[in-house]
């Protein structure tokens, strides 16, 4: 039913916390790998659980799980540390050694500024997105709960706009600079140009050029990530939910927001549906409760492909069960 999910280069699995995103993402990744597609499974949730699910260490580097499945847990802390170290090293080359300690202090503050983690995460996500279609046939993202993810997906637009603004200023400054040179600026004393034209600031291969290159590079990354994300032939967004009030409400909101951002929502996995043969008065009562939610989901999302996954008697903790779950989601065969 959701077979087309596995034809996209990028698949994002999202939803409320605790509905089974990680399990769904991992199950789909195993099916993709089983079909001989080189697949990378990526967790962007700061509270990673891929390693726990597969019962083996994964971490910040791509780790092989099967012959064609790799996994990666993005560590924004580490990403931010590496970024700040690079900036520190560049600063040290430019200032007097007596300022080293002060610069370190300053940058360590930036380390804990709001938004730093998000920005670091986005940077890595953008890089990983670029691997799809090249190093991997498919990259599957096990995303953080909806709010974080929506914010993350809207960031490339905001950031690209910000970089555009900065580049606009650089461009105007460069135009004025060349007008100035045509008027013989910099050759004549007393024009208060000492600051502008000294220190080889505006020459070829100069500071200006480096500034522009950095800004352009950033901009390219964001624009590219956004293009990939919004291309329905490249990306798919799968929402996971449970048949309960809070999960349904959050899914409605998430679907609205994603649609507003033109992110292609491709399907719905209704997870942990009580199977009809589960017996007992208690489960009967629960089943009566979930019935209206199942109906509501079918009504509201009638135009989206949906698949119901039953609540299983056992916890999933082996690859074979996961794989079977995955086949069930894409519509190959039932779980039980």
């Amino acid at each position: 039913m959701l077979n087309e999910l596995l034809t996209r280069r990028l698949l994002f699995v999202g939803g409320k916390g605790g509905v089974g995103k990680t399990t769904t993402a991992a199950a789909l990744a195993l099916v993709a790998a089983e079909r001989d597609r080189r697949c990378l499974l990526v967790s962007t949730d700061p509270a990673h659980s891929l390693a726990d699910l597969f019962g083996r260490p994964i971490g910040h580097r791509e780790t092989a799980l099967t012959a064609s499945l790799w996994a990666l847990e993005i560590d924004p802390d580490r990403q931010a540390d590496e970024h700040l170290e690079t900036v520190k090293a560049r600063m040290r080359r430019l200032v007097h050694p007596r300022s080293f300690a002060e610069i370190d202090r300053q940058l360590d503050l930036a380390r804990h500024a709001p938004g730093t983690m998000e920005a670091a995460l986005l940077e890595r996500v953008a890089e990983v997105m670029a691997l799809a279609g090249d190093q991997y046939d498919q990259v599957i993202f096990d995303t953080a709960p909806t709010g974080h993810t929506v914010r993350l997906l809207s960031l490339p637009e905001v950031m690209a706009a910000w970089m555009d603004g900065l580049l606009g200023h650089r461009e105007r400054s460069a135009r004025l600079g060349s007008a100035l040179r045509n008027l013989g600026g910099g050759r004549v004393k007393g024009d208060d140009l000492s600051l502008l034209e000294s220190a080889a600031d505006h020459a070829e291969g100069s500071r200006d050029q480096q500034l522009n290159e950095l800004l352009q590079m950033r901009r390219r990354k964001f624009v590219r990530a956004r293009e990939l994300l919004l291309d329905a032939n490249v990306s798919a967004f799968l929402l996971v939910l449970n048949p309960d009030r809070l999960a349904v409400l959050e899914t409605i909101k998430a679907h609205e927001i994603l649609t507003r951002f033109s992110v292609p929502v491709t399907g719905l996995v209704v997870n942990r549906v009580l199977p009809p043969d589960a017996d007992g008065a208690f489960l009967d009562a629960r089943r009566r409760q979930e019935a209206p939610y199942l109906e509501q989901i079918d009504q509201i999302f009638s135009r989206l492909p949906r698949v119901r996954v039953p609540l299983l008697p056992d916890e999933i903790n082996d690859m074979e069960t996961l794989r079977r779950l995955g086949r069930n989601i894409v519509g190959d065969d039932p779980v039980r």
């Binding site: 970024h83 560049r90 938004g115 730093t116 910000w162 970089m163 500071r207």
Partner: peptide, 14 residues
Amino acid sequence: PAAYYTLELQPLLL
């Protein structure tokens, strides 16, 4: 909003 990314420009403007 882009503080994390503009940080890398600061050395060049010092």
